[in-house]
Design a protein around this nucleic acid. Structure first.
Length: 275
DNA sequence: AGTGCGACCCGAACGC
DNA sequence: TGCGTTCGGGTCGCAC
């Protein structure tokens, strides 16, 4: 659901509201969502930290504070809302930040899978998640040779390997299917069996799909919207994902759905024939 | 090291 | 119509 394009879309919206604001305090209603440090330290350290910059790293949203980086991971359904202290807390709003303009910035997640971390600036590259993340899709070091090396010991299906954030970061279940469709690669193909052309196509189509999705403001499927009243439009561009039993836009073959590594996977049996 | 799978969650979709 | 069951999604931790 939130993959790189949705994460970027959300980060850009937060930028407009949060840059220059100071966090006065934070209330935590579901401790498991605070991944690091422990909840009490988290609450204590974040007081009076000013928000200077907002970026993304993989699927993480990264807020640069005075002394820390504040990281959010939306997992499947994490979202943010701006409210005032008079607005009653919705049961899905689990972490509430009070800002110096007295607005409240609330992190909500129906599934409670979202994560927040507060990491000392000097430690950011010494600990997870940053030590585990692979290349961003637009990194010039993302080459066929890089993938050849990473894929060489992988007998897993390429569909599963595209979701491995330690190789290319930012791809999730939706865009993985779309990238493989455009690359004409069967999702069950073992990563180590891919050709040089396959790897080049994957890189080219990753950038193509993500750029287009960012331009469209992300994808809205099921109940996922990035924020109140904010709806991405990329779902209109999907070729295979969530199109089971519908005709392929290229060859009219019926799109099929299978399970790969436990994940719903959609593809065109003709355009993405097993080799 | 690579692989497979349950756990974390709970609303929506599905099956009867 | 109503109720019980299954599904899904990203990531981690554990067992093999």
């Amino acid at each position: 659901m939130p993959e790189k394009p949705e994460v970027i879309t959300v980060a850009r919206k937060l930028e407009k509201k949060l840059i220059g604001r100071k966090i006065l305090k934070v209330e935590v209603y579901h401790d498991n969502m605070v991944d690091y440090p422990d909840v009490e330290s988290f609450k204590k350290r974040i007081r009076n930290q000013k928000i200077h910059e907002i970026t993304t790293k993989g699927k993480w949203i990264v807020l640069t504070l005075d002394d820390f980086y504040l990281l959010f991971h939306l997992r499947m359904e994490g979202k943010f809302f701006f409210r005032t202290k008079d607005d009653e807390r919705n049961k899905h709003e689990h972490i509430i930040f009070t800002l110096d303009d007295l607005e409240e910035f609330r992190f909500a997640d129906v599934r409670k899978f979202g994560k927040v971390m507060l990491i000392e600036k000097e430690n950011i590259y010494k600990m997870k998640p940053f030590t585990e993340l692979g290349l961003e899709p637009w990194d010039k070091n993302l080459t066929s040779e890089y993938l050849k090396e990473k894929y060489s010991r992988k007998s897993l299906p390429i569909k599963s390997v595209l979701l491995d954030q330690s190789i290319i970061t930012g791809i999730g279940n939706i865009y993985a299917d779309e990238i493989l469709f455009l690359s004409k690669i069967n999702p069950l193909t073992k990563a180590k069996d891919l050709t040089d052309k396959n790897r080049k196509d994957i890189i080219e189509n990753t950038v193509k799909v993500l750029d287009k999705a960012i331009e469209e403001g992300g994808t809205t499927i099921r109940s996922y919207t990035s924020e109140e009243g904010v709806t991405g439009m990329f779902q209109n561009n999907l070729n295979v994902h969530q199109r089971e039993k519908e005709p392929c836009r290229v060859c009219n073959t019926t799109i099929v759905k299978i399970k790969v590594g436990g994940r719903g996977t959609y593809y065109c049996p003709t355009c993405q024939k097993e080799k």
